[in-house]
Design a protein around this nucleic acid. Structure first.
Lengths: 237, 237
DNA sequence: AAGTGGTCTAGACCACTTC
DNA sequence: AAGTGGTCTAGACCACTTT
C-alpha cells in the first residue's frame, strides 16, 4: 500500500518542512538515496520529481538537488462565477449598444450590439454582489440560453471555441458603482465598492466576453493563499 | 538538442490546444505512442507526466489518459511587497499597543506592544499605495533592522522560523482608509480604497505578522490570470 | 578523474477496466 | 482474456561541475 517512491518523497518532504534541510542546502545525491533505501536510481528520481513539482527543490546538473526558499510573491485565488453559499437572481437581460469603457475592453466599435446580463447574488436573502456580463451580440447564437443554463461565465464559450484556447484574466480594484448596481444592492448612488473585472479571450488575443462584479459586505471579500493546500490553516476572523 | 520526450509532449500539447483532442477524449495509449515514436514506454510516460503536471490530462488506471477541461475557477496572482515600478518611503516606525482589529487579527491581548511600520509607494513621485505592517514586539529582536534591509515582508521571518513552515494568506476588499493613510496618500479622510490584508502565520496556526496595503490610482490594480503563462496575452487597456 | 544529474532502453510484475 | 496504466529493476551513455 505504501509505495517506496512515496515513502522516500514523504521523508524528504518532512525533512525540508522541519528545517533538517534548509533553503540553500543540498539534498543527498540520487546514488546516496538509492543506496540508503536499497533501491534503484529511477525510483529515487521519481520521488525527487514530486518534490520538484511542489517547487521545494531544483535539480542542478552536475551538482545536486538544491532546496529552494518559499515563494511568497505568488498567490492562489479561487473565484467562482457563482459565489459559494449564495443564491442568484437575474435583474436584467438586454441587448444594448456598446459604448465607452465596455466597448474599449471588448475591442468593439461603439454602437455594435452587446448582450447585457445583470445578476445579483444573495446571502441569507440579502444582495451582496452584482455581476454584469457583456457579450458581443451575434445573431442566431443561443448564448443567453447557455448562460441561463450553465451560469459559469467562461464555460459559456467552450462549445463555440476550442476550450483550451480560452483564457480568463482578472483585474481587482475599488471604484464607484453605477446607479443600476447601487439600486440592486441597496446602497447610495456613487458608493465605492470592490470591483472584479474579468476578460475572457482566446489565446490569439480576441476578446470574447467581459464581466464586472461589484461586491459589498463581508461575504464579498476575496481570499488568496501562498499555497494551494493551505486553506485549512487560517480560520482567523 | 531536441529530446524525444519533449517532442512527444509538445506534439500532444499542440494537439490538445488545437482541439484535435478535446476535453473528455482519450489520448492514445502508452503502448500506441511508444510504437508510434519507436521508443520505450518509459519515455512516453515521461512525456505524459509533463502534460499531467500542467493539468491537461489525467491518467485513469486501466482505461487511458483523459483530456481535462480547463479550470477557470482558479486564478494566479502576483503580489509583491514592493510594487514593481515604484519607489518607497518610510512614513512612520513606532511601537504601539495592540488594539481592536489588529489585536484580533494577530490573536494578541489588547495592550501588548506592536511594531508599526508604515511605508508608502510612489509611482513617478506620486504616492499611490500605503503599507501598514504590524509585528508583535519581542525585546531584543532586530526585526526593524531586518525589515529596513530586506523589505520583503514574509522574508523577515525566515531567519527566526523554519522557512517552509511559514504561510501567507491574503484578503482583498474595499474599505474606508484611516486618517493617517489618507494623509499620506493625499485623499479625503474616509475615502474608500482597495485594501489588501496579509496574515503571516506558521503552519501550526500561530500568527506572526499582519500587514495592510491601501491602494489608490491605476497602478494599484491587482491582476490575476487563469494561467501562469498567460500574462503576455492581454495588453488590453 | 570522479561525482552529479539527464536521457533512454528492454524488460518484469501488479492492479484496474472492459469485453 | 486482453488491454490499460502503476511500480520497479539493472544497466548504459551523455553532459555538466568540482577537485
Amino acid at each position: 500500500m505504501a509505495y517506496l517512491y512515496q515513502t522516500i518523497s514523504d521523508n524528504l518532504h518532512r525533512e525540508i518542512f522541519s528545517g533538517r534541510y534548509a533553503p540553500g542546502d543540498m539534498l543527498p545525491s540520487e546514488n546516496e538515496l538509492a543506496a540508503q533505501y536499497h533501491t534503484s536510481r529511477i525510483t529515487v528520481r521519481k520521488a525527487l520529481q514530486i518534490l520538484e513539482n511542489e517547487a521545494l527543490i531544483r535539480p542542478q546538473h552536475g551538482k545536486g538537488y538544491l532546496v529552494l526558499p518559499p515563494e511568497f510573491g505568488r498567490f492562489y485565488l479561487e473565484f467562482h462565477d457563482q459565489p459559494p453559499g449564495s443564491s442568484s437572481r437575474y435583474d436584467e437581460i438586454n441587448v444594448i449598444p456598446a459604448a465607452g469603457e465596455i466597448a474599449r475592453r471588448l475591442g468593439m466599435e461603439p454602437g455594435r450590439m452587446l448582450i447585457l446580463i445583470r445578476r445579483s447574488f444573495l446571502f441569507d436573502g440579502v444582495p451582496a454582489a452584482c455581476d454584469e456580463k457583456f457579450i458581443p451580440y451575434v445573431k442566431g447564437e443561443p448564448i443567453i440560453e447557455r448562460e441561463l443554463h450553465y451560469a459559469q461565465f467562461p464555460d459559456v464559450f467552450t462549445d463555440k471555441y476550442v476550450p483550451r484556447a480560452i483564457l480568463a484574466n482578472m483585474e481587482i480594484d475599488a471604484a464607484a458603482a453605477p446607479p443600476e448596481v447601487c439600486a440592486v444592492l441597496g446602497c447610495e448612488p456613487g458608493t465605492v465598492l470592490l470591483r472584479v473585472s474579468r476578460t475572457i479571450q482566446t489565446r490569439s488575443g480576441a476578446r470574447i466576453g467581459f464581466s464586472r462584479r461589484w461586491c459589498t459586505g463581508s461575504q464579498a471579500v476575496l481570499t488568496a493563499d501562498s499555497d494551494w493546500e493551505s486553506e485549512r490553516y487560517y480560520p482567523i476572523v
